[in-house]
Amino acid sequence: MMRALYTSATGMMAQQLNMDVIANNLANVNTTGFKRSRADFQDLLYQEMRPAGTVVAQGAQAPTGVEVGLGVKTGATETMFDQGTFQNTGNKLDVAIEGDGFYKVLLPDGSTGYTRDGAFKRDSQGKLVNSDGMAIQPEITIPSTATDIAIGKDGTVSVTEAGNSTPQTIGKITLTQFSNPAGLKHLGGNNFAATDASGSPVDGTAGQGGFGTLSQGILEMSNVQIVQEMVNMITAQRAYETNSKSIQTADEMLQTANQLKH
């Protein structure tokens, strides 16, 4: 059986996964804090028919070998953490990170999640939580008597209460960095989890030590560029069609060989 059939099949499967990644990017084009992904591919093993340097005659060596590749495989799906676009909402509890860093939230199982989604809200107890009710860490509780909320670029949260014109500091939003954020595990719900590949989390203050600053009343939107994703989609589609054409051509060659006996 011709190797081209199996080689082209790996190419079609690779482009199908590529399309899955692109489709997920486009589906999340309006997701707050979403980071696009990219599929990386690697060539498979090579069948070596003659090694380079083989002696072909007295005192002569073949300068190159004879190798045939066996296709392609998925090497990784990498998350790209470049900055997303900003949207001015005017909501006092919407906070965007300008630069590096993640917010920490308490997951339902008691572990810590990390997110770029700064669309915060108050729960029934006044705690600052995300859209799923997960409290930001360390916890910040906003008094029910607060008439105004201010979040500084360094994460300091201050409130002005009724009958008191002097703002009172009630906590600070801290940020977390990783040496390899691409190694974080996707949990869904705009949350990530630390892994051995991401490195240990490092907490710090916004605006210091390489951490980004915070902007109140603004949300960081997805970093998906629709035009770029559409170009990637066209490229993946054409590559898929080309691999399917290779299978058709290999099939026609086999058909020709089968008809030789006639």
Rank of each mutant, 00 (worst) to 15 (best):
A76K: 01
L107C: 07
T89L: 05
D100I: 03
I97L: 03
D82Q: 13
G101Y: 06
G118R: 10
P108V: 14
G99K: 03
D82T: 11
K104M: 08
N91E: 13
L106V: 07
T112F: 04
D94E: 00
Y103C: 04
G113L: 06
M80Q: 11
T115H: 03
N88F: 05
A96Q: 06
A76Y: 04
G110F: 02
D82S: 09
N91I: 13
K104W: 03
G113T: 04
Y103H: 07
E78P: 12
R116T: 12
E98D: 14
D109C: 12
D100K: 04
D100F: 06
T89E: 08
E78L: 07
T79F: 02
K104V: 08
R116K: 15
F102T: 03
G118W: 05
D94S: 03
T85Q: 13
E98F: 06
E98N: 13
D100G: 06
V95W: 00
F81N: 10
F81S: 08
T115A: 02
G110M: 01
S111D: 15
D94L: 00
V95C: 05
D82H: 07
V105L: 05
T85G: 15
I97G: 03
T89S: 13
T89G: 15
G110I: 04
L93A: 14
G99I: 11
P108S: 09
Y114F: 15
V95G: 08
F102R: 00
D109W: 06
T77C: 00
Y103G: 03
T77P: 14
D82A: 08
N88S: 10
K92L: 09
G113R: 08
P108T: 08
Q87D: 15
L106T: 05
T85N: 14
D117C: 11
Y114P: 07
S111Y: 02
V105N: 10
P108Y: 09
G90F: 01
D109M: 10
T85P: 11
G84Q: 09
K104F: 06
T85L: 03
A96L: 07
F81L: 09
N88W: 00
G84T: 11
I97R: 01
Q87M: 11
D117A: 12
Q87N: 15
G118Q: 07
D82F: 09
G84L: 04
T115R: 01
G118I: 11
G84I: 01
I97S: 01
N88L: 13
V95F: 02
T112H: 02
G99D: 12
G84V: 02
Y103F: 14
G101H: 08
N91T: 13
D117T: 13
F81R: 04
A96K: 02
N88C: 10
D82M: 09
S111L: 04
D109I: 08
D109N: 12
T89R: 03
T85I: 14
D117M: 10
K92Q: 13
Y114M: 11
S111T: 08
L107Y: 01
K104S: 12
F81C: 12
G101D: 06
G110H: 02
Y114N: 07
T77I: 14
M80H: 10
M80R: 03
R116D: 15
E98Y: 13
D82C: 06
T77A: 04
T112E: 10
Q87V: 12
I97F: 00
D109T: 09
G113Y: 10
N88Q: 15
G118N: 04
K92S: 11
D94C: 04
R116V: 15
T79V: 15
D82K: 01
